[in-house]
């Protein structure tokens, strides 16, 4: 039941995302587009197919990816507040992006452009490596420190990495800087079809091989040692799950900029709606809810009816930050965070 309603909400939000925008499209054209016919007006066709459709698809994929990464990190680290943004994984990805955008591209343009003309692939790769590096640091700390300490360490990691990025920005060429600054605001609208062809498969593959670890994620709920006692190959499972999380966070950060708080909020929503910790059931709902919430955040950010756009990050923070506060207060009363 919950799943059907969520699927319906997702479809409704997706269609709304296509219907609304700063440039009006006639209802007739929109209906023709929805029924897979070419809109009559070429301008409408361009807006629908090359602007709104990739934007909506990107938002849906990014939301699903961040929610999935959040769920993976919460389960593997056994930390209800784990999320790519909070623990500095997005910052790691940003560093990768900054290196590619500000330094690497001019130096190796001739070599890279021959195998990766759009630069999309190297961007994803660099971001995923940056995200993975932060995940390794967190993994090394997670058994030694408590939930709160880990969050503070994550924040400090983010500050540290952002400082490095600032230094890179200081030495960067002005024309590269412009692209980087625009990227860093975070938006779903800048992804072109060419980039989407890299982004979508990256997310799809990471969700697939990460999602297949659902049984291991169940075992991790009992902690490292009990997971081993249940016959889990914890090292392999953890590497697979966190690689998947790194690619998901990396891909989203590479194309949409640093987008926070979806990852922490959505898994809590899914668990609350289903009333279970069983990952085989949680993962599909987490994906759908993540996609829906990202579409909603993007809709709000676009301020329908106006020509201006808010940074998506601001909107997701408005949704996600209260969830974190709620989790903290709820857990404080039961004393399970320490």
């Amino acid at each position: 039941m919950v799943r059907w309603i969520s699927a319906f909400v997702f479809v409704a939000l997706f269609i709304t995302a296509l219907a609304l925008g700063s440039v009006p499209v006639t209802f007739d054209d929109f209906f023709r587009f929805l029924t897979f016919r070419e809109p009559l007006d070429p301008q409408s066709a361009f807006i629908l197919i090359d602007v709104r459709l990739p934007r909506a698809l990107t938002a849906a994929f990014a939301g699903a990816a961040l929610a999935m990464a959040g769920l993976q990190m919460q389960s593997v680290f056994r930390n209800p507040l784990a999320d790519p943004y909070i623990l500095g994984v997005n910052s790691g990805a940003s560093l990768g992006v900054a290196i590619v955008m500000l330094i690497a591209v001019p130096a190796s343009q001739s070599f890279l452009s021959s195998i990766d003309p759009s630069g999309a692939f190297s961007l994803v790769l660099a971001a995923s490596i940056g995200a993975g590096a932060v995940l390794v640091v967190i993994l090394a700390l997670v058994t030694r420190v408590g939930v709160m300490t880990l969050l503070i360490v994550g924040l400090m990691l983010a500050y540290l990495i952002n400082a490095v990025v600032s230094i890179l920005i200081f030495f960067a060429m002005p024309e590269r800087l412009q692209t980087f600054i625009t990227w860093s605001f975070g938006q779903f609208g800048s992804v072109t079809w060419v980039q989407f062809k890299v982004f979508a498969p990256a997310v799809f593959i990471a969700v697939l091989f990460g999602g297949l670890q659902f049984k291991s994620m169940d075992a991790f709920l009992l902690g490292e040692e009990q997971a081993r006692a249940l016959g889990e190959n914890t090292v392999r499972a953890r590497v697979l799950i966190l690689c998947s999380a790194a690619i998901l966070a990396g891909a989203v950060t590479a194309f949409c900029g640093p987008i926070g708080f979806l990852g922490v909020a959505v898994p809590h929503l899914a668990r609350g709606l289903l009333g279970t910790r069983n990952h085989a059931r949680l993962i599909p709902l987490t994906l759908i809810l993540g996609a829906s919430l990202a579409l909603l955040a993007d809709l709000i950010a676009r301020l329908p009816g106006t020509a201006s756009t808010l940074p998506v990050n601001a909107v997701t923070a408005l949704i996600g930050a209260p969830v974190i506060i709620w989790v903290l207060l709820k857990n404080r009363s039961t004393g399970s965070l320490s």
Partner: peptide, 13 residues
């Protein structure tokens, strides 16, 4: 194996 020291996550039936 069973250890009393293990902590369970919230929301598990």
């Amino acid at each position: 194996c069973l250890s009393t020291r293990e902590e369970l996550p919230a929301g598990m039936s």
